[in-house]
């Protein structure tokens, strides 16, 4: 399923409370239309993973997620044989005195003993093609990237004991990277690329309003302005959108109608996740940022 226009896609996404700017919407639209994998890069917490989730929702299909980590290998990404069950089966056959080598090999390495990991599951998925999310690919080793390269070009997997498994219809692939290391160009070339930046205050406000409709308008404006101001400071870890969402949820829970210096200091840990950053900002600098944010907010309102 694809969308007739970029506008239609953008509308569908915002219907699911995902505010995508034009650039991101164009990339998603083309990835669907051209059936290419979409590679999303950007700082942590700008909504890369969310794209895949919301895409699965608007397309009304399943989301299959592969979380990458160092050491991820074929056994955890693609398939593995169910060794304990195989061993048990061998024992049973032996007990029956029926262990015929060839037959046993055929029987033991059949689909019955196969554990499907996300990539294989995505290829064997029946019905409408699922969204396959390969999350934080930069965490995986280079070897795995090489394997993925092959998979993304042919959408087939070869299991020596079973033969080649080909996807009836290729899944919709979304890859994300936090850029802790550079991915290989060969892999990037297969993908459409989009860099998701931190949103500007207007877009962030839109996101806050969509995701936290229960928050007072004034508070949402202040949070958006404060976070935008905060991101200008030199920080080890800048505040992502997911953190500003956490923050506004916390402020609503605390029943705050507006931001004030005390509240900011008390809840700073929700938007700064690095002790050095918290210490650098808390107090004097936080008050300065708040002051500028409130002044800017009043300005745009007036």
């Amino acid at each position: 399923m694809t969308f007739p226009t970029i506008d239609a896609l953008q509308g569908a996404l915002s219907g699911r409370r995902y505010i995508a700017d034009r650039g991101l919407a164009t990339s998603i639209f083309l990835a669907l239309a051209l059936r290419r994998p979409l590679l999303l890069e950007g700082e942590a917490g700008v909504g890369k993973t969310e794209v895949a989730k919301v895409l699965a929702a608007v397309l009304e299909t399943d989301l299959i997620r592969l979380q990458c980590y160092e050491g991820l290998d074929v056994a955890h990404a693609v398939y593995e044989w169910n060794y304990p069950r195989q061993l048990l089966e061998i024992r049973l056959l032996q007990a029956e005195g029926a262990l015929d080598r060839r037959a046993a090999e055929r029987e033991l390495f059949s689909r019955e003993f196969l554990i499907r990991r996300p990539l294989l599951a995505a290829l064997e998925h029946g019905g409408p093609p699922p969204v396959l999310l390969i999350d934080e690919l930069d965490r995986a080793d280079e070897e795995f990237e090489g394997y993925l390269l092959e998979l993304l070009s042919d959408f087939q997997i070869t299991i020596p004991e079973l033969g080649t498994i080909q996807a009836a219809e290729p899944p919709i692939v979304v890859l994300t990277s936090n850029r802790t290391r550079e991915l290989h160009d060969a892999l990037k070339r297969r993908c459409l690329f989009h860099w998701i930046d931190y949103p500007d205050p207007a877009k962030e406000l839109e996101i806050l309003r969509a995701k936290a409709p229960e928050a007072p308008q004034r508070l949402a404006e202040q949070v958006a302005a404060f976070v935008a101001e905060l991101r200008r400071a030199e920080l080890y870890k800048k505040t992502g959108v997911s953190e500003s969402l956490d923050w506004i949820a916390a402020l609503v829970a605390l029943d705050r109608q507006e931001l004030d210096a005390e509240t900011v200091d008390e809840t700073l840990g929700l938007i700064l996740k690095n002790q050095e950053d918290v210490e650098a900002i808390r107090g004097e600098r936080a008050r300065g940022i708040l002051h500028r944010a409130l002044a800017g907010g009043a300005h745009s309102a007036g």
């Binding site: 164009t26 083309l30 990037k188 993908c191 860099w195």
Partner: peptide, 23 residues
């Protein structure tokens, strides 16, 4: 042909997402 090339922004993003793959 899939996009409205009259919209400069869409044209820009289309070229960008297809031609660029490094931040």
């Amino acid at each position: 042909p899939l996009i409205d090339i009259g919209r400069r922004q869409d044209f820009y993003y289309t070229l960008r997402t297809l031609l660029i793959h490094r931040a």
